[in-house]
Each structure stands twice: as structure tokens, then as C-alpha cells.
Design a protein around this nucleic acid. Structure first.
Lengths: 364, 364
DNA sequence: AACGTCGGAAGAGACGATTCTGCAAGCCGC
DNA sequence: GCGGCTTGCAGAATCGTCTCTTCCGACGTT
């Protein structure tokens, strides 16, 4: 015999099913995929035989034939050796969770991939067939993104791309509106001089937020008071918070751009004997639920990473499947200011903390 | 002409490279993969032509041919609609980060997949070619795991499998030693009656920890004092914490098995006017760095998810590549008790919080 | 001169599915 | 009765790569 039709490696192939069901390969394929013109009896029969044999179509063969893998890359910028950024842990976790969920619901799976292809012994990127890619905070001239676009792979970014990176679509928060609203909120709570804890890096989040702060100060006739530090260094944040509160022109309210800033600032305030919110109003940008439980609870700006993740994936899959239609290729998402004790001048119950509402705990 | 050799869909194939280089397909393949017997001149020439054409081998075709995809599944148990569990967010994030890192370093990528195949319109599992799978906390008779094992796909689990699930290997913490050591620590700090905040689910983590607690109580001659709640419900934790401290036989120390229990217990203690650590010693199991910044800082038990993730992936890849040799197929990992103010009876500086050491902030 | 060996390169299947094309039979109306 | 339509299914090409086998010429040996 030239070819043994029996299962060669323990797994049944479509040929085995066809033989067992007494039909052709074509019929099996059509029956299983709901295509072709087959009477229900044949369809049922084939399916039953396939089930009995434990048949699973080979994903590799299907991908090779159809050109679609059902795989979406999820890329994150890297600091040093590790693939995720440290400072936005909760943001990333929630964003990835939502993105994964949204992808799964449409039959796609997410593949975690490193942002910059370092001189790794393997090039993982070219070993994976991707239908599209999500990029978080793409850097100025990301070689990976450029290469993907060149190959015709759709790319959607979380965060508007710097420079002229030709992404298929992008999703971002309205950072200007968020910062402006937040500063207005602090001013309304009685703040006279609002400080900013910002970063030294040039990503759009940092840049847009800082610019919005500076513009707001100009409009409000306040001198800007800010400290910048390298956001990827968790210890530098504590130092910068301390420096900000040590200044001669000490602010009576502070907004921290990064997740750990809340605890950093709270600790610094304690060191200087400043009471929050009595002597110092505090807000930071964070997705972490713990700020509902600090003493006092800290007002946070949530970027709603869940919604971003979902939207990014929807946009990407629409682009992949060509169902995008005439939709705009960028989408601005609202943020959410979760007001807690730290930004309200009038004192509320301080010994007995208020019961947390679901709204403050929930992530969605 | 029967077949147009030109790029049909914008992407160059190996045939195009062969034609452009004036050699055969075999030679191109050998040159690019470092196989065969070719003089360096030919090798260089082929590589240069391939580069010039921007040739990328098709991952699908390679996978089909070689049977290896370079993809590793990462499965998490699901609660309701969402693919990750809520209570172990930080644990999962860190574990996934480390696992992804370890996989990438060896040329593999991680694919996020749902644990239980619900009646989703698509079966994502069979659309992905997986070389192996990591399963987190597999449930008793996980159908997905069973199916994978049946197909001969290596499966390594984080957390020892319940029942007789035939995984290839597993990695877990020494939960008994962790709980025993932690309770000893609390007793040494002066605790007379230690309470437990535990879960109602039957996973091995909850079960082993609770059993260790009960055994410790028996040895120490203390009546067990515990409350159990459904761990997947974030609000139930606060209620259970309250209940625990409201009991007539109120404990003077509490260990909470789940991540949010620290803030839950702290809030409950405040409601009852209990000072921590003076009236109540507190420890909870958590990977969250925020417990270094609470007032007071809370002692936590870290399960070292990073190490677990790395180990799980190493074991899995060893199994995939057959380099596992005679290694044992299960590995017990140590935990780490990070002692902070909340479990130390003698008071330390309370108004000025100690500067956080890198050890307490770092994740690795 | 015949022969074995070795370097260098090409040929020709697989791998396992999808899918385009085509054929045979049954049924309809005219 | 015959052309055309629909139904039910089979054949075979194809996706792009890897790799086993073969082939050819050159060289050194006996």
C-alpha cells in the first residue's frame, strides 16, 4: 500500500473521517463547516462519525489554506528585560483582560508578544501567523509596527501613535478633557495652587497631560508647580513626591500622573505632617481598587482600560474582517473621575470609613 | 503560463526567493535554516536576496510541516463571563508576565485562552495549534485538560491538580508550610487566638490552606475561628471580614487567604475601633505592593507568582522538546512572608512610615 | 581504468485542510 | 423525449514550507 490511511500519529485526520463515514473529503469538510449543499442526514452522519473519532481539524492546515489564523498579537513596550511596564500594571492587566474577552467572543485569541524585537536568539514575531495586532503605546518609529503594516497586517494602537506611524486605527482617552476636569474639580474643592507629579518620558500620555496642566495653569493664572521623574523607576516616584512637597512654593493640591503616586504622595504628606485632605488635596491616575481603602481614600482618575481594550479589539477585528465600513479610524474614550475623600475639603466621616459602593470597586 | 511566480498577494514566498537568487527552493530553505551542505557564499547570497525581498517564512506552512507552532496556551479558570478571576488579579498578572518572559526567551509565545469552553459560537481551542498548555488551578475534571492530554499535548498546571487529572507536570507552593510558618509568626508576635478568612470553593489552595490552619489550631490547642465566603465575590469579603470581627470569640489576629482581605479586614477593624497591630494582628495573602503603603503597612504572604510562572513554562517547554530527562514532574515552590507593621506587636514608628525597601516593592 | 566518496544542489513528495470545478442523476415543463 | 435546472457528492488543485532522496561531477585511491 502506498499510503496507510490509518491514523499515523494517534490523531484522526479528515481523511480518516471520510473513510469511516463512507464519503469524500469534500463532503466531510462541507458537513463540518456548514457549507455546500448537503442533506441534513449526511451532515448529521458525518458529524457523528467525526465526534466518534475525536476528530479535530488541524489549525495549521486551516490557517495555511484560508490565510486566517484567528490570532491577534498583543504588544507592549518593554523596559529592560521584562515585557510589561511596571508602572501601569493594573492598567495593563485590566486592558488585556477586556481585550482577551472581546477577542474570544468573536473567535479570536490573543498572543502576548514583545514590543521591540531585541537580539533574541529567536524571532518570535515571524514564527506566529497573526491576523492583526494590538499595540499599546507605540513608540515613535516602532520597527515592529512598520514591518507589520508593510506586510498588510492591520494594527490598532491603544494610545494615539506618535509621529506618523501608519496604524490602521487607534483608541485613546481624552487626556486634555480629563486633566482639565480634574483640575477644575480640585479648584472647586478649594485648591489655590495645584501641583503636578509627572514623568520625564515623551510618550503621548505624559506629554498631553502635562500640556493640559500647563494650559490650565495659564488660564487659571497660577504658576505651574511640578516635578518630573522617570516613570519606569518605582523608587523615583517616592523621591519626586517628597521633592514636590518640600518646595518653598508647596502646592495645596497635587495630581499624580502615575499609579503609585497616590501612596507616594500620601507617604510624603505624612512625613511633612500634612493632613489629607485638610492641608493637601490629592488625586492620582490609577486603576487600582486599593485607593478606595487607603486612609483616607484617594480620588482617582480612571482611564477605563477595560473599555479601551474592548474597543481596540473590536476595531481590529472589524478591520481584519473588512466589516469596518466607513467608521472613523480613531476613537476618543472618556475617562472617569472617582471622587473620594482625598479631594474633598469638607470633612466627612473620618474614623468610620464610608462603605464602598460597587461603583468604586467594580472595574468595568 | 501555468503559475505566475510573481508575488500574488504582496508577500514574497520561498519560491520567489529561489527564483530571484537563481537557486532551488531546497537551497533557499537550507540556507535560511542553516541546514544542508552549502558553501558560505551561496548561503550569504540567498540570505541577502531574501532580505532584499523582505521574505518572511509562512508560520502556518512551517507549523503544518514541522508540527511545532511555538505557541503555548495559557488557561485560566473563569467566573461568569470574564476569563480571569477577580480575586487573584495581581497574582495572575505577575504570573503571566513571568511566564510570557520565560516563554519568549526560549522562542515560544503565550496564547490567552478561556478555561472552560462554554457554548461560545466558536471553539477557539481547536482553531489554535498549541505545542503545550499551562493551566492555572485546573478544576476537578477539566474537560479541556482531558482533551488536550488525549491528543498528546503536554499540560503543566500551576497548582496541583485535583483528582486524578493526568497533567504532564505541576508546580505549586508549599501551602501547608506557608500557613504553619505564618501562624507561628503570629503566635510569636503574641497572638492568642488566630482567626481565618477563607473561601467556600473547593480549589486546592483554599482547601490545603484551611486544613493546615485547622491542624495548626489542633496542635496549638486553639479553637478554630473562621469565616468562609465565596471568594469570587469582591463584596462578600468585606462582609465576611466584618462578621469575623463581630464574633463573641473575636480573634486577636487574623489571616486572610485572599488578596483583598487586607483592606477588608483593615476597614472592619476601623469600624470596631480596633487598632492594628495593637488590638489586632493582620496578615493576608497578596502579591499587591499596596500593602506596603497602607496605614499601617500590612504583612503579606507572597506566593511568588513570578517564580511559579517561570518554572511552569520551563517544565512545559522541556516536556515539549523532550529535554525533560529524569526530572521530577512536580515541583514545590517556597513562599515569602513579607513582615510589616500589622503583625508586629511592639510598636514601631507609626507617624513616620519607614521608607519602603526595594525588597518590599519589587515583584521578582 | 574502475570505484567509492564527498560536496553541492535539485526534485518531489508530504503536512491537512479548503474550495473550485465538474459529473451524474432526478425532476420539471414543453 | 429532451434541454435545463437543482441536488448530492467526488476529484484534484492549492496554500508554503521542510526534507528525504536522488543526481551529477570532481577527486583521490587501488
Amino acid at each position: 500500500m502506498s499510503r496507510a490511511h490509518g491514523r499515523r500519529l494517534g490523531r484522526a485526520g479528515i481523511r480518516d473521517v471520510a473513510a469511516a463515514a463512507g464519503v469524500s473529503i469534500t463532503t466531510v469538510s462541507d458537513a463540518l463547516n456548514g457549507k455546500g449543499r448537503l442533506p441534513d442526514a449526511t451532515r448529521r452522519h458525518v458529524r457523528e462519525v467525526a465526534d466518534r473519532l475525536g476528530y479535530r481539524p488541524s489549525a495549521a492546515a486551516r490557517t495555511l489554506r484560508t490565510g486566517k489564523s484567528g490570532l491577534i498579537g498583543l504588544t507592549v513596550t518593554t523596559y529592560g528585560e521584562e515585557p510589561f511596564t511596571f508602572t501601569e500594571f493594573a492598567y495593563f492587566a485590566e486592558m488585556a483582560r477586556a481585550a482577551s474577552s472581546a477577542a474570544l467572543a468573536r473567535g479570536y485569541a490573543l498572543v502576548i508578544l514583545p514590543g521591540s524585537t531585541r537580539q533574541s536568539p529567536y524571532d518570535v514575531w515571524s514564527n506566529v501567523a497573526l491576523d492583526g495586532t494590538v499595540v499599546i503605546d507605540p513608540s515613535d518609529r516602532d520597527p515592529v509596527v512598520a514591518e507589520l503594516v508593510r506586510q498588510g497586517v492591520p494594527v490598532v494602537s491603544d494610545g494615539r501613535p506618535c509621529g506618523d506611524l501608519p496604524v490602521t486605527a487607534w483608541v485613546d482617552n481624552d487626556h486634555e478633557a480629563a486633566v482639565t476636569g480634574l483640575l477644575d474639580h480640585l479648584a472647586a474643592a478649594g485648591a489655590r495652587r495645584i501641583g503636578l507629579l509627572t514623568g520625564t518620558s515623551t510618550d503621548t500620555y505624559t506629554r498631553l497631560s502635562t500640556e493640559a496642566y500647563l494650559r490650565w495653569c495659564e488660564r487659571a493664572g497660577q504658576d505651574p508647580v511640578y516635578e518630573a521623574y522617570p516613570a519606569h523607576d518605582p523608587c523615583a516616584g517616592a523621591v519626586a513626591a517628597d521633592r514636590l512637597l518640600a518646595r518653598p512654593d508647596r502646592p495645596d493640591a497635587v495630581y499624580g500622573l502615575f499609579d503609585p503616586n497616590g501612596t507616594d504622595l500620601l507617604a510624603a504628606a505624612r512625613r511633612y505632617g500634612l493632613r489629607v485632605p485638610d492641608d493637601l488635596l490629592l488625586v492620582c491616575c490609577s486603576e487600582s481598587a486599593v485607593y478606595a481603602g487607603t486612609e483616607p481614600p484617594i480620588t482617582t482618575l480612571s482611564l477605563k482600560p477595560g473599555r479601551i481594550g474592548t474597543t481596540v479589539v473590536q476595531l481590529l477585528i472589524d478591520a481584519i474582517e473588512g466589516t469596518g465600513g466607513g467608521d472613523p479610524v480613531q476613537r476618543i474614550m472618556p475617562t472617569d473621575l472617582i471622587v473620594r475623600t482625598s479631594s474633598q475639603r469638607r470633612r466627612r466621616r473620618t474614623t468610620v470609613s464610608a462603605p464602598r459602593s460597587p461603583e468604586q470597586r467594580g472595574q468595568a
